[in-house]
Structure formats: structure tokens, C-alpha cells
Simulated assay, not measured.
Amino acid sequence: MALAPLLHSKLPSFPFILFSIFIYSNSLYASDYPPLSLDHYASTCPTVFDVIRKEMECEVLSDPRNAALVVRLHFHDCFVQGCDGSVLLDDTITLQGEKKASPNVNSLKGFRIIDKIKNKVESECPGIVSCADILTIAARDAVILVGGPYWDVPVGRKDSKTASYELASANIPTADEGLLSIISKFLYQGLSVTDVVALSGAHTIGMARCANFRARIYGDFETTSDRSPLSETYLSNLKSICPAAVGGDNNVSAMDNITPNLFDNSYYQILLKGEGLLNSDQECIRACLEFKQSSLL
């Protein structure tokens, strides 16, 4: 049985799984806090959702890549101590924040956007809305603004007063990480192997640094791809962006070279052709498909 048809016929709908995982992320917060609710700010800051949406609209209109920056920031926040805004904390004399942890230092660039939204919200409702809620709502709106699905965001998160450089370094999956290690990190968060594949679909928007895909394009890219003229042209373009020798580490390429500014399924089509930009994503889709195929034999 061919692997590509197997993906379409046997795996759940990827937009639906992404939708489910974002819903799940709403519960990743300290269990000793009051339950989240849709009307938490109904009386204290009724305009909060409108303010955040309008600010995200401006950011995405100015640069569609800003949507990916906010989604990535939300993901990196939730994988450390839950969705508590700890990733937003700066280093102080008494606190080592998460911003300079190795998975974050060259990856996260959405802080300015959240700071700007926070200032707008504060002007409307001083001292009411947590940064953790602002980031979570903004991530939802970012996805919608580039064509992704809508989901309700229950609110009432409390901002963390602590951060964990150690957990940020240990818990957040990286682009060159092995599949088993990535799966173990997702399992630690209560997520499944299917969720690993689903969440990688968020790479349908956003960019990757040369340092994170150099090994892939000078390694097994040609082996996994169909080596068609289009594939060869794509690989040649990637190599022009990312030289094999020293240098160019901060040069970037879209992870979805077909529709880089649209939240859709095209990234999975790229993976099915063996042309995934990141080793971790390509390895993940291959292993998942093989597992699904073997389970049907």
C-alpha cells in the first residue's frame, strides 16, 4: 500500500488535530488556579478580545510572518511550566529567564508584538488581563488571520513570577532532534505521537534558520525527495540561501515554500514528497506513516 494515500485515508484531519491541540493548550496551566472560563473578563475588561484582535490584524497586515512569531512564542511558553507567560520574563539579578535558553535564543522574536498588545490592553483595563492570556488569545487570532481555524479561548490564566531556563533547555523540541526524544517531550506534556505530527503542521507558516536545516539539505534531502526538476530547483535554492561551509547561519527560508503565509495543509504535501525542510519533521512524518501502514497489515 502506498504511503501517501494512507495518510489521507487513515490519519485524522490535520486542521482538526491542530485545532484540538490548541484547545488542549488552554488547559496547560497550574492546576491550583481557578478554572478558566470564556467570561472571565466580561465585567472587568469586556473589550480585551477586540483589542487583541485589532492589534494582531495590524501586525499580520504589516508582515504575515508575524503570525508565526506569535504562534511559536505561545508554543514555547506552554512547553515550560504550562501557558503561564514565563517565556516573557526578562533576566534580573534574582531571576534567570527562558529567553536565552538554547531553543529560544535564536528562535523567538515575537516579544515586541506581545509588549505592544499588552500596552494597548493596559490602557483599556489597567492591571486586569494577564500576559499569559494575552499571548494565548493573540496566538489564536494569529492563526485565524492567516487562514486557520477559529476556536474559543477560555481565559483567567495567572502570570508566572518564575521562569525556568533549565526546563526551557530540556523540554522544548529542537529542529535537529531525534524522533524518540521529541516524542518523549510530547508525552511529558500529555500529548500523543499523533499530536507530534499534528503540531508540526504549524510549520505551514514561519521561517527556519539555515543553522537548523543545513544538515538536512546537505544530508538526506535528495534521498527522501523524488528528485524531480522542481525538487532539484528547490534544493538548489535552499543551498544558495544556506552555504555548506561556515557562515549564513541566520539566513532563513520558509518551512512551507508553496504557501508560506497561509495556514493550510500544504506543508504535509511537502513532507509526503520528502521535501521537508527540517530533519525532525521529515523523520516524524515518515515514522508515523510507517507505523500506520504496519498497523493495517
Rank of each mutant, 00 (worst) to 15 (best):
R157N: 03
R157T: 05
K158E: 04
D159S: 09
D159W: 11
D159N: 13
S160P: 10
S160C: 12
S160H: 09
K161F: 14
K161H: 14
T162D: 13
T162A: 08
A163I: 13
A163C: 14
Y165R: 11
Y165M: 12
Y165Q: 11
Y165D: 13
Y165N: 15
Y165A: 12
L167H: 08
L167K: 13
S169H: 03
A170K: 10
N171E: 03
I172H: 09
T174E: 09
A175R: 06
A175V: 12
D176M: 10
E177L: 08
L180A: 07
L180E: 13
L180H: 07
S181I: 12
S181D: 14
I182V: 15
S184V: 07
S184C: 07
K185F: 04
F186P: 00
F186I: 10
L187D: 06
Y188M: 11
Q189G: 02
Q189C: 07
Q189H: 13
Q189Y: 01
Q189P: 01
G190Y: 15
G190F: 14
L191P: 05
L191Q: 11
L191H: 03
S192N: 12
S192Y: 02
S192P: 06
V193W: 10
V193E: 11
T194Q: 04
T194C: 02
V196W: 06
A198E: 03
L199R: 01
L199H: 10
S200M: 09
G201T: 03
G201L: 03
G201I: 02
A202G: 04
A202W: 06
A202I: 08
H203E: 07
H203G: 07
I205E: 04
G206K: 08
G206T: 06
G206V: 07
M207Q: 15
M207E: 13
A208P: 08
A208E: 15
A208H: 10
R209I: 02
C210P: 06
A211T: 06
A211P: 01
N212P: 01
N212M: 06
N212A: 10
F213H: 02
F213D: 02
R214M: 01
R216Q: 11
R216M: 04
I217W: 00
I217M: 01
G219V: 00
G219L: 04
D220T: 00
F221C: 03
F221K: 00
E222A: 13
T223K: 12
T223A: 10
T223N: 10
T224S: 06
S225F: 07
S225R: 11
S225M: 09
